[in-house]
Simulated scan of single mutants.
Amino acid sequence: MSRAFGALFKGGDAMHVLLAEDDLKLAAMIAERLVAESHTVAHASSGPEALEMAEAAIPDVVVLDRMLPGIDGLSVLRRWREVGLGAPVLMLTALDSIDDRVEGLETGADDYLGKPFAFTELLARLNALMRRAAAVQPDLMLEARGVVLDLLKREARCGDQPVLLQPREFRLLEQLVRNKGDTVTRQMLLEKVWGFHFDPQTNIVETHMSRLRSKLVESGACDVIQTVRGVGYRIDET
Score class of each variant (00 low, 15 high):
4 A>M: 11
5 F>K: 14
6 G>P: 04
6 G>V: 01
11 G>Q: 15
14 A>C: 08
23 D>F: 01
25 K>G: 09
29 M>D: 06
33 R>W: 00
34 L>H: 01
37 E>P: 02
38 S>I: 02
40 T>M: 04
40 T>A: 08
45 S>W: 02
46 S>T: 14
47 G>V: 02
49 E>D: 12
50 A>E: 04
50 A>C: 12
50 A>V: 06
52 E>M: 06
57 A>W: 02
57 A>C: 07
58 I>V: 13
59 P>Q: 07
63 V>W: 01
67 M>A: 15
69 P>Y: 06
69 P>F: 06
71 I>E: 10
80 W>M: 04
84 G>W: 03
86 G>E: 12
90 L>V: 05
91 M>R: 03
94 A>M: 12
95 L>V: 14
95 L>P: 00
98 I>M: 15
102 V>M: 10
105 L>H: 11
106 E>I: 01
116 P>F: 01
118 A>Y: 13
118 A>K: 14
121 E>T: 13
123 L>K: 11
125 R>M: 05
127 N>T: 12
128 A>C: 08
130 M>N: 03
134 A>T: 04
139 D>Q: 08
144 A>S: 13
144 A>T: 11
149 L>K: 06
155 E>N: 12
155 E>H: 12
156 A>P: 04
160 D>N: 13
160 D>L: 11
163 V>Q: 03
163 V>Y: 06
163 V>P: 02
164 L>N: 15
164 L>T: 15
169 E>F: 11
171 R>G: 09
171 R>K: 13
172 L>Y: 03
173 L>I: 02
175 Q>E: 14
175 Q>F: 04
176 L>M: 08
183 T>W: 03
183 T>E: 05
184 V>S: 13
185 T>G: 14
186 R>V: 14
189 L>R: 01
190 L>Y: 10
191 E>A: 11
193 V>P: 07
194 W>R: 06
199 D>F: 07
199 D>N: 09
202 T>Y: 11
204 I>S: 01
208 H>F: 11
208 H>C: 03
209 M>F: 01
210 S>Y: 04
212 L>K: 02
218 E>A: 15
218 E>D: 15
219 S>H: 04
220 G>N: 08
221 A>T: 06
225 I>E: 00
225 I>K: 00
227 T>G: 06
229 R>L: 15
230 G>K: 06
230 G>H: 08
232 G>I: 12
234 R>V: 02
235 I>N: 03
